[in-house]
């Protein structure tokens, strides 16, 4: 197969100048490495861009009127609506999450619970018959006040959100996402 026109370099005795040989190798590696570095670095730089991106800062959003949450202790679900951006697209008043609001009999204070399951992020639903929350994914169960009902795979209770009554009497909720799957309720920034 091999052509006989040129002597393959391997047939030559090893060069008699080890110093020069080492230098050549080092230089070859350096040049090759330097040439490859820019695309790799540029690639990694851009690929890791998402790490710089921050989610929307936690802020209070008006969610519902007080009367919309009957004081029967049962949670009602409301979307949290806010302007949001998805990379280059901007959305005006788009649902960014959902909360459960509930009020005890005769109470003016509202409890707000995030509808995101602290186990792995599915959407928790209310079971009005059993007066509890259930997660449809891995059967985590939560009491009506968000407390965990053992045995559940979720590591913690449902995430309670800060909540206040705004100047016009409407309920405002501080929307936040939390890390799932850990015991600690840690906000994502």
């Amino acid at each position: 197969m091999g052509s006989t026109h040129h002597d393959p370099p391997a047939d030559r005795p090893p060069g008699g100048e080890p110093r020069r040989d080492l230098l050549t190798r080092l230089a070859a590696l350096t040049c090759g490495g330097l040439a490859t570095l820019p695309p790799v670095l540029a690639g990694v730089w851009t690929f890791l861009d998402p790490l710089r991106r921050k989610g929307a800062a936690a802020a209070f959003h008006p969610v519902a009127e007080l009367e919309a949450v009957p004081d029967d202790g049962l949670p009602r679900r409301f979307p949290v609506v806010s302007d949001r951006t998805d990379a280059w697209t901007g959305f005006a008043s788009d649902p960014i999450g959902a909360v459960y609001l509930r009020r005890e009999k005769g109470s003016e204070t509202v409890q707000a619970l995030s509808a995101t399951c602290p186990h792995a992020g599915c959407f928790v639903e209310v079971d009005p018959q059993e007066k509890c929350f259930r997660c449809p994914c891995h059967n985590s169960r939560f009491a009506i006040d968000g407390g965990i009902v053992p045995p559940s795979p979720s590591p913690r209770a449902m995430d309670e959100l800060e909540c206040r009554i705004g100047p016009g009497g409407e309920i405002e909720v501080q929307w936040q996402n939390f890390y799932t799957g850990i015991a600690e309720k840690k906000a994502r920034s």
């Binding site: 792995a120 891995h138 590591p155």
Partner: peptide
């Protein structure tokens, strides 16, 4: 891992 708490998952 129901009921194992945080380590379960």
């Amino acid at each position: 891992f129901e009921g194992w708490g945080a380590s379960g998952e």
